[in-house]
Amino acid sequence: MKTVVLNIALFMLPLWLHGCTAIEPVSAWERGYLADPAMQWDRGKREAKFAGHVYTSKEASSGGAGAAGGGCGCN
C-alpha cells in the first residue's frame, strides 16, 4: 500500500510544482470564468450536506469538507 501512496504522491508532485510556478496574475476584471457556478467547490450547499451524510454513514472515512451534520447513521 505504501507503494501506491508513494506513486500518487510522485504523480501529484509535478502538478503541484507546476501549479506553484505557473501562477498568472489575474486582475479583478478578468475573473468572469472563475465566477461561473461551474467553478464552485461543491454541487450546492444542500446537496453537499446530504451527500456528505450518506457517505459518512456508509464508509469509515469522514472529514475534509467542513463540519458534518448530526445524526447517528448507525444502520
Partner: peptide, 18 residues
C-alpha cells in the same frame, strides 16, 4: 461573450469563486 470580455466588476476571492 460577456464572460470572455472579463466583465467581473468585483474582485472575486479565490475561496468561493462564484
Amino acid at each position: 461573450l460577456v464572460r470572455s470580455l472579463g466583465a467581473t466588476l468585483t474582485a472575486l476571492p479565490a475561496y468561493q469563486s462564484a
